[in-house]
Nucleic acid binder design. Structure first.
Lengths: 229, 229
DNA sequence: GACTATCTTAAGACTTTCTTCATAATTACA
DNA sequence: TGTAATTATGAAGAAAGTCTTAAGATAGTC
């Protein structure tokens, strides 16, 4: 397989260098930019296949840069944002990005997303705008951050949405309680049973006709939860 | 379930030994190093899956060691430090550590982080699509943690699933009762005959059309059980 | 600073699974 | 064929895991 080139744009040099080390270990070529303007210049001068873009940068922020890039090219863009920033707002603004990761992130997770985006890029040749997932009568609209059951909009809280999103995007796969906690809260699971159980129950109350006999969010006793494909 | 090997590098022997006890209790193999240099040597000579690294060490400190390691490998690194300052935390992570724990820490919290990192490492490192194993009409779906017989889903409990998984992944091989107990329960077998037999029986009840004349889970008299290839 | 949403924690109820024990059935072999 | 060793079975209490309720903590908003 030909080598891919990844452009990393972040104003923090430690983060740039850290990401570079991981990417090189995975066999990618790496270019680095300290701000959005520099990123655009490098993008024009080189054959770049994927872009990792911090939102907060001097000269030109990541969102503006994304708009500029999208006018010309369709390469995968992964956005980085600080956890402190309002993630909902960021998500809303970051239309045009293919994926986004909140800091602090686990390097291996970023690598996984890079791989996944490149796979998609290669496979479809271009980014496909499909942002709806459907399982049975349950629909997840990633752009509107909205879930509908048989056409009716259901109002979920951020955590409830993220759990449902995780289960729907991986429908059929069972997630242990710890896994759910780690992927939604983005921190190591420690006594997570109860809190996840409470949120699962809230989700069921909202999306299940009969929460006692759930049609979507099913328990796999002793292992975890899943939404059937 | 393959065993994981964790390398603990700390100049304080009490801490090394303490962590070792907890790790072994969780079923991990443990290697120990007293400084960064020793850690690097052990890392080269052994198949290590995760590294717990103290920052303050003679010969080579944890941060330098992390740099060296990252030039070659992407394994999870958890850093230990006596300092609780935030700047250290960020520095440690940006330098390539995956997680960070400040002393004094609760051993179980460290264990939770070890588990969490290994989960990520496995999930993101080796993921390649659908994982299914088939033997005769028996199919094991590792993602759904589900087993189907001639297309029909069979509901197994965690222990039943693990036993079936062991036998299917090594179809054709005979496992003694003690071996099954040790690999599934992850502890030394002692009077395991009956309990394994009970679970085998439950499995047969669920996956065999005629439990008296089992088609899949066969006994090898005086030796153990197997599932034929 | 009060109000509202949401999140977290705790405790007990409830359900499923695991283990144990007693006993029965099967196999190997003298 | 008889006997000892091994495996199979049924039932019940113990243990583990999940669900539910409710109240306190926290964060965002006006």
């Amino acid at each position: 397989m030909a080598k891919f080139t990844v452009l990393v744009a972040d104003d923090d040099q430690d983060i740039r260098d850290g990401i570079e080390i991981y990417l090189k270990n995975e066999g990618y070529d790496v270019l680095k930019a300290a701000d959005g303007k520099e990123a655009l210049e490098l993008l024009e001068a080189n054959d770049v296949h994927l872009l990792i873009l911090d939102i907060m940068m001097p000269n030109m922020d990541g969102i503006t840069a994304t708009f500029k890039i999208r006018e010309v090219r369709n390469i995968p863009i992964i956005m980085l944002s600080a956890k402190a920033e309002d993630s909902d707002k960021i998500h809303g603004l970051s239309v045009g990005a293919d994926d986004y990761v909140t800091k602090p992130f686990h390097p291996m997770e970023l690598m996984a997303r890079v791989k996944s985006q490149l796979r998609r890029y290669i496979q479809f040749g271009t980014y496909d705008g499909q942002k709806k997932i459907e399982v049975d009568g349950l629909v997840l609209d990633e752009e509107a951050k909205e879930i509908t059951v048989e056409g009716d909009v259901v109002k979920l809280t951020p955590i409830e949405y993220k759990i449902t999103e995780l289960l729907m995007k991986n429908a059929g796969r069972v997630f242990s309680i710890n896994e759910i906690y780690e992927r939604v809260w983005n921190e190591a699971a420690y006594n997570a049973e109860n809190i996840v159980a409470v949120h699962i129950r809230k989700i069921r109350e909202k999306i299940e006709a009969d929460p006692k006999n759930p049609r979507y969010v099913k328990v796999v006793w002793g292992i975890g939860y899943k939404i059937e494909k």
